[in-house]
Nucleic acid binder design. Structure first.
Length: 615
RNA sequence: GCGCCCGUAGCUCAGCUGGAUAGAGCGUUGGUUUCCGAAGCCAAAGGUCGCAGGUUCGAAUCCUGCCGGGCGCGCCA
């Protein structure tokens, strides 16, 4: 059933990636957040808006640990002197025991330090929390995540990497926040590329039973083509179609027939799907990525006709230049908004139609509060059309959020669309094996690898390669184009995945040695200067998590993990830990190490990066 | 033509709802292992934040205009 449309005035419900969600989804427990409550209350006590009492980690660590800039904003509103406003606030704060320093600086910054006792108590609560301070959302929702989008009969290439690993990270982040996520790989399995391959095979093998209209028996169970065949056939056939009008017509006819239910084509198509899915699963296994749903465009096919019939009945769909379309433009549009094509003039459907039908199906089956598409930015107009069509048709009620989280085009180091030396696109498995090969070589140099078995060494090489590849990509937030640099992708030094693994592994090694010597991490903290820098950073995890969750930006977690790793590395270089003679200090430092290790592993896990025991 | 995105160090990029001295990595230069993993650590050099206005006590961040680049704009996905 399809609800009555409201096509006159369409609310802009879809959101651009940049639009920030206003509502706070998690109750975070970072130290800055706790302080925000305290300072916010102080603002309120002074008759000022409490939301101006927001406390953040200071960007001048030489001056203070935390800062609040709200006094200046409050002064502006109230037309008062900012330093006087700040003065009133800090007089209220003087009674609080949490602070060891409260100062007004510059035009009206409120600079704050917390007492060691308060910081230590906070750390103890973080250490005692299995989630390390990351709280669950108060409002769990069902969310469908649409990413991957691999094509049947086309090999996975490096261009698929972004959607896959960003989608996977967002999935893990939302799941950890407590949402019920459903990931759908949404294969491209119903468009012209299928007709291209089918028609090519018909030309090559007209004797096959799939092409025999009179054939009434069961088709062979075994696929007549392998994934390697498909990898080769598609580019050739695609080229032929571009060069030859008649050849293209054959492909289109095959597409239409497939969609229309041609028995032999459907049987052949199922073979393509089976061999392609098997290949995709193999690739995803190396990336350690999985999906809940293995649907595709074709999955929505049964819903297409009822939806289109309904639109026709409501006079929302009409013929235009031989095609059946629906208008999605609005009066206040500031750009041309082409109609959504439901049926091409040749009678075949395109991905807009299947995307619309897919939204309808998803609403019926899962009733999600949100559907998020992690797809190339260049698809933004397409999604805008589809989202509008979903509102108009009633497929998605207005309170369901439809969101396109786009990312940029992959370019080479020359700034032009990425191509291999051979001129093609690099296959994903080739990229991964290059990374693994480099990791293997690096491991062979290391003394540590001597006593490892072959299996462990392979496992480590794989983990290092995956960490390198994923981190190199995920740390970049650009919604615009990005540069694909193979050397950077498989680099192990500096701000890289392997660097993060290295720090985590070093801590694990340290903790193992501590256990051997009977040293245990303490429950209390002794915070000398070198310890304090790391300790303060360890209170920030919920902020990083919350930011990544709200804005669908895993790179905020990359940034946190990297800052944590470098902070630990400095701490490690500056402080004695196992060799520390003072037992209490040693236990405190071991506890810092342990929290760091757990946070690193948690964050890396959210990014889809696994940590080995040694490397 | 219309629309979207982008322009920050030699290169690749962070910089969240405007805040104090704009940060990383790579690359360059110099130090660092008789102590827990040197895939490390410490330090130096390197930036008129594309340009010009505007709003503001305060702008890389917000607004306007320009310049430069990428992408999209009905029967591919």
């Amino acid at each position: 059933m399809i609800c009555a449309p409201e096509h006159k005035i369409l609310p802009v419900i879809y959101q651009k990636d940049k639009v920030k969600s206003v509502k706070k989804e998690t109750v975070v427990a970072s130290l800055a957040n706790k302080l925000t409550e305290i300072v916010g209350a102080a603002f309120e006590a002074c008759g000022l808006p409490p939301e101006l009492g927001r406390v953040a980690v200071s960007d001048r660590q030489d001056l203070a640990q935390f800062q609040c800039n709200g006094a200046m904003a409050a002064a502006k509103q109230a037309k008062k002197n900012p330093r006087e406003v700040a003065q009133a606030v800090i007089e209220v704060l003087q009674s609080r025991k949490e602070f060891s320093k409260i100062e007004i600086a510059g035009p009206g910054f409120i600079n704050l330090n917390v007492t060691d006792e308060y910081l230590a108590a906070h750390l103890a609560s973080v250490a005692g929390d299995a989630r390390l301070g990351v709280d669950r959302t108060a409002k769990a929702e069902t969310v469908i995540l649409d990413y991957g989008g691999y094509n049947i009969a086309k090999p996975l290439h490096v261009g698929h990497l972004r959607s896959t690993i960003i989608g996977d990270a967002i999935n893990k982040i939302m799941k950890t926040a407590g949402h019920k996520t459903i990931s759908d790989v949404h294969f491209g399995d119903w468009g012209t590329q299928m007709g291209i391959v089918i028609s090519e095979l018909e030309i090559m093998h007209p004797e096959w039973p799939y092409f025999d209209e009179a054939f009434a028996k069961e088709y062979p169970k075994e696929s007549p083509v392998t994934i390697a065949d498909l990898d080769r056939i598609y580019p050739e056939a695609s080229k032929a179609c571009k060069e030859n009008e008649v050849r293209l017509e054959k492909a289109k006819a095959a597409t239409r027939a497939l969609q229309g239910g041609h028995r032999g084509y459907r049987a052949l198509w199922q073979h393509f799907v089976d061999v392609s899915v098997a290949d995709v699963k193999k690739n995803l296994a190396t990336l350690n990525v999985d999906f809940d749903l293995w649907d595709g465009e074709a999955s929505a096919n049964p819903s297409v006709k009822p939806i289109v019939d309904d639109l026709k009945a409501k006079k929302l769909a009409f013929e235009s230049d031989g095609a059946l379309v629906m208008a999605v433009a609005k009066n206040d549009d500031n750009k041309e908004m082409p109609p959504l094509i439901l049926y091409k003039s040749d009678g075949a459907v395109m991905y807009g139609t299947t995307d619309l039908a897919t939204i309808f199906d998803r609403m019926q089956k899962y009733k999600p509060a949100k559907i998020i598409y992690i797809v190339d930015q260049r698809q933004s107009l397409h999604f805008e059309q589809v989202f509008r069509a979903a509102r108009i048709s009633g497929a998605a009620p207005n309170d369901v959020e439809l969101l396109h989280t786009g990312f940029g085009t992959m370019n080479g180091t020359d700034g032009k669309p990425f191509k291999t030396r051979a001129g093609g696109v690099m296959k994903l498995e080739d990229l991964i094996s290059m990374g693994v090969e480099k990791a293997r070589a690096r491991l062979a140099e290391a003394d540590l690898a001597q006593d490892m078995g072959a299996a462990e060494r392979e496992d480590i090489a794989h983990k290092v390669a995956i960490a390198a590849i994923k981190f190199a990509d995920l740390q970049n937030n650009r919604t615009a184009d990005y540069v694909f640099d193979i050397d950077r992708m498989t680099s192990f030094e500096g701000k890289t995945g392997p660097y993060l693994l290295y720090q985590a592994v070093r801590i694990k090694s340290l903790l193992r040695k501590a256990a051997e010597q009977g040293f245990k991490p303490g429950k209390t903290f002794i915070l000398q200067d070198a310890d304090k820098t790391l300790a303060l950073l360890l209170t920030e995890l919920p902020d990083a998590f919350d930011g990544a969750l709200r804005n669908y930006t895993p790179h905020l977690l990359c940034d946190y993990a990297y800052r944590l790793a470098t902070a630990f590395s400095s701490f490690y270089a500056a402080c004695h830990i196992l060799s520390e003679a003072d037992e209490a200090l040693r236990a405190s430092r071991l506890a810092l190490c342990e929290i760091t290790q757990r946070q690193l592993e948690l964050v890396l896990g959210l990014l889809g990066i696994g940590v080995p025991e040694r490397m």
